[in-house]
């Protein structure tokens, strides 16, 4: 219980200090697909409860980098990684790390909505059940509802919970995938071009959702839309040919980038 002004200030300062610390810290990250190097010495810190956009031309390594954060690259046999990726100060490539647990803390949303061939309810309940989070039905019902509310989908599906997830529209399916990701209480949500297959209205709903989610989650998004990066993120990182060229406040990247390559890319001069 906080009582005095001093205590309130201390709590505030602690939160501020915590907010200034990087939640995700990557240093000297190199990634190889067989003998082909896809990322070169990437050093990037991602702050807690901020949205960070990764931009760059196709094949620049931004999705590869995103997949380093939740060890999704592990499933690619030819892929190897060097360097350090820390989350909350913990090396996530430490052999002692439980990858299933790690991925529960880091939700991921893909380019194309990929609901399971199950009901809307089961899509959301699947993760918590897998991780043994809820035993009784009423708790699970609450979790499913809470996740769908947070994903901005509850009002649209509350009467269709038993219908297949695949029967929803593309935009609804993507929000269902976000509900599925947040149902296991992650700290981080990774989004790999989450709006590239959506119409402008569905895209706007996802962007609105990102704005709301950033209060509770740290979000990293790969996007090809410069305007989307400008709208949704506080930080933007520009990748080119596997190198992290520039990272900074989104406003600065789009208003007055330091690096000429960044300027050429964001203004559409890059060939």
């Amino acid at each position: 219980m906080v009582n005095t002004i001093d205590q309130i200030i201390n709590v505030f300062d602690e939160q501020k200090i915590r907010k200034n610390e990087a939640l995700i810290s990557c240093s000297g990250v190199n990634v190889f697909y067989s003998d082909k190097q896809a990322l070169f010495d990437v050093n990037l810190d991602i702050k807690e409860k901020e949205v960070t956009s990764l931009i760059g031309p196709s094949g620049c390594g931004k999705s590869t980098f995103l997949r380093c954060i939740n060890r999704m690259n592990d499933v690619i046999e030819t892929c190897s990684i060097e360097g350090l990726v820390k989350i909350n100060g913990q090396d996530i490539y430490d052999p002692k790390i439980d990858v299933v647990e790690l991925r529960a803390k880091i939700g991921m949303v893909f380019q194309k909505p990929n609901p399971f061939p199950k009901s809307v309810y089961e899509n959301v309940a699947y993760g918590p059940r897998l991780h043994g989070m809820f035993i009784n039905k009423s708790d699970m019902d609450k979790k499913v509802e809470e996740s769908l509310v947070r994903a901005g989908l509850w009002n649209e599906v509350k009467d269709r919970l038993q219908e297949p997830g695949t029967s929803l529209s593309g935009g609804q399916q993507q929000r269902l995938c976000i509900a599925r990701a947040i149902a296991v209480d992650p700290e981080i949500i990774l989004m790999d071009e989450p709006c590239s297959s959506l119409d402008p209205i569905a895209t706007a709903k996802i962007e609105e959702l990102i704005d709301e989610l950033k209060v509770n989650y740290t979000i990293t998004i790969v996007t090809h839309s410069m305007q989307q990066a400008a709208r949704v993120s506080q930080k933007t990182a520009f990748f080119h040919l596997g190198h992290l060229i520039e990272v900074g406040e989104t406003e600065n990247i789009f208003r007055n980038p330091i690096n000429k390559q960044t300027e050429a890319y964001v203004t559409g001069r890059y060939g």
């Binding site: 410069m226 400008a230 789009f254 208003r255 007055n256 980038p257 300027e263 203004t267 559409g268």
Partner: peptide, 10 residues
């Protein structure tokens, strides 16, 4: 129509 950025936006 172009949603310019950086130098172009300025």
């Amino acid at each position: 129509s172009r949603q310019p950025m950086a130098f172009d936006l300025r």
